[in-house]
Simulated scan of single mutants.
Amino acid sequence: MNHQDAHRRTERLLRWALGLAAFLSSAALWWPLPASAARIKEVAAVQGVRSNPLVGYGLVVGLDGTGDQTTQTPFTTQSINAMLQQMGVTVPPGTSMQLRNVASVLVTAQLPPFARPGQTIDVAVSSIGNAKSLRGGTLIATALKGADGQIYALAQGNLVVGGAGASANGSKVQINHLSAGRVPEGATVERSVPTPLNDSEVLHLGLNASDYATAKAVAAAINRSKGPGVAAAVDGRTVSVRPPAGSDDRISFLADIENLSIVLEKPAARVVLNARTGSVVINDAVTLSTCAVAHGSLTVTISTTPAVSQPNPLAGGDTKVVEKSDIAITQQGGALMQLPPGAKLADVVKALNTLGATPQDLLAILQAMKTAGALNAEIEVI
């Protein structure tokens, strides 16, 4: 291969590379970008098929002297007396019971849908007295009731407490929380809760969040897969579905539609403010209009100095210690800054960072921007 052939080959490769680059750049205009997709099971669930909270009052025994102080928690002693009476043991009246190895607790659990008698569920145990620790304790048989007052499960077992602690001579060290624990599979289901899964000709899918576009997308995906007229969007939160009549076919039908993919539209612009922690969360749909913001900080400092008030020798007064307080207010001025309009989340974050404000300051700044009409988003304070 001579020099001219090599030069021609280089020109052909260069033309091919330029053509490929032009094709890719034009494809960016007509080729659809990958959209955000999710399965129906991740955005909706069958209405009426849900878990039910259970609660019960019980006793934890076998503690190593870290239980309730019965002088301050008399209900623990009353519970022990009632339990012993049921077991045929009578405690003489007026007996002073110092039960440092017993603690009164509340037991909570979630009864999952379709749970049947004999199945087991996890329970959480929390002290309601002044017990120092539940570590090493055993929960005795506790009836768990629902909102209707009926018993749906029976809990008992050894507690698992994810903490440790020790104290001596007024010193104390503790890791994690010691007055709450769990009993894995500690409750046995005694009664099931009926569900409307097979009772109606029409089932309703409840969306996790109210959104008309999502409801429309869910109904369209079901109709494409199962035929027209099977699903219809009732409102922004509910989609009605007509499943097959048979129980077996109905389960298969629901399993199929749960795994159908839908395209999620961009959510509504929202800013979430946590007033307790100062956290600020902004989603991708938030935009910012042109505005000018001046931010400054105000600091109030109070210093107290003790002083001795000494009266004259013949005044007959008393020598006293008084406190002298000095109050100073310092204000750091902030320059007036113009924030450019931002159509992307990165632009909004960059504009807010130019203010040099702390997350606590942003709570007030964002609310002021919303009032001025410069923040195109809904503000939610939690």
Score class of each variant (00 low, 15 high):
V202T: 14
S171G: 09
A180R: 14
L355N: 01
H295I: 14
Y212A: 05
D5A: 14
G246F: 08
G181Q: 07
G136A: 11
A21G: 06
I382P: 00
G146K: 01
V202K: 08
A141E: 10
L59H: 10
Q332V: 11
A255E: 14
R237S: 08
V60D: 01
A168M: 07
M1V: 04
A219D: 06
S127V: 14
G170R: 07
N312F: 12
A269T: 15
V280Q: 07
A255T: 11
A164G: 05
G118I: 03
D347F: 08
G48M: 02
M83Q: 07
V60A: 04
Q98N: 08
T238R: 12
D249Y: 10
A38D: 04
V281A: 12
G356F: 07
E323A: 15
G229A: 05
S96V: 15
A357D: 10
V280G: 00
T76G: 02
A231E: 01
L29D: 03
H177T: 15
Q150Y: 11
I257D: 03
V308Q: 09
E258V: 10
S133I: 00
V183H: 04
E42I: 10
M337S: 12
V183N: 01
D347H: 06
P53G: 03
V271H: 04
A153L: 03
L111H: 03
G94Q: 04
V43D: 04
D249Q: 11
G62A: 12
A219R: 01
A357N: 06
I121V: 10
S26R: 05
S179I: 10
A245I: 09
A21K: 02
T138E: 08
D5Q: 13
L99Q: 02
D361F: 07
P194V: 08
V189Y: 06
A292W: 10
A143D: 14
S25E: 15
Q85H: 12
L20G: 15
H295S: 13
V160A: 09
L363P: 00
P184C: 01
G163A: 03
Y152E: 00
A346E: 05
V239G: 08
A21T: 14
N312L: 09
A38H: 02
